[in-house]
Amino acid sequence: MSVAQVASVVRTRRRSRLSHLGVIGWLALAVIVVFVFVAAFGEALAPDDPNAIDIAYANVGPIPGHPLGFDDLGRDLLSRLLVGARSSFVGPLALVALSTVAGTTLALIAAWRRGWTDATLSAGFDIAFAFPGILLAILLATLFGAGLAVAVIALTLAYTPSLGRLLRATALRETGMEYVKAFRVMGYSDVRIVVRHVLPNLMPFIIAQAIIMFGYATLDLGGLSFLGLGVQPPTADWGVMVAAGAPALLQGYPTQTLAAGTCLVLAAVAFGVLGDRLARMWGVE
């Protein structure tokens, strides 16, 4: 088989079915579906008011009707976890959406223009890639005050170049394909070629990367919220809950911290695994 034929087989394989996800992939997908459902309908699902404080129940363990017990202020833990899903996923969603759009746009521009545009953008990606996103978030929080929006913006600045870097290499390969040259000769506009042809062919790669990125985003934003530099209390949020439960944990009541931490880790693992499996299934690792 010629190189071209091998490439063609790889490209056809993209069309493989979801059945190729494997058991673990399906499990990850199931976990994500549950999380998304909870994030959408958390309030309706919550058995109790997540913000109703009752000091009398502070750190009380499971009792009938309250399967996880109560937090340090006597709020129902299960309700707070369910309601907290939304705040824990809204930030990552915004972060992933912003950096995917920005990273894809920059990578496509670099790959399409080539030459010095590409050299400049690539150098920018490499420099920005080396600066830790969390540190940038801390710096921006100092300047503009702590909050989810600032954290998302800071991490967008860090995630964009790392996606841009990955995608540029793939986009360069795609824009070098002969069909792209043929379209230019046939008089298609640059925008048409890039938006209608190159971009859709890169979509499997972009989607897989975005899903993997979502896992990291959950942990990074959860971590910033834990530090007090992301979502602010009293909003129910998993990162905030890990921090809020720390004093109770030291006194022997670890449920809040560990339950919220488990949710974050589970989400991160599920997104990481699913992204990985999709990338493998579509042949775009």
Partner: peptide, 22 residues
């Protein structure tokens, strides 16, 4: 290793405190 690699320090810290210290 795959699982552990996904546990961030701010979660593993408390797991360790809870198990090995408390």
């Amino acid at each position: 290793a795959t699982l552990v690699a996904a546990i961030p320090a701010f979660v593993s810290s408390f797991l360790l405190i809870n198990v090995f210290a408390l």
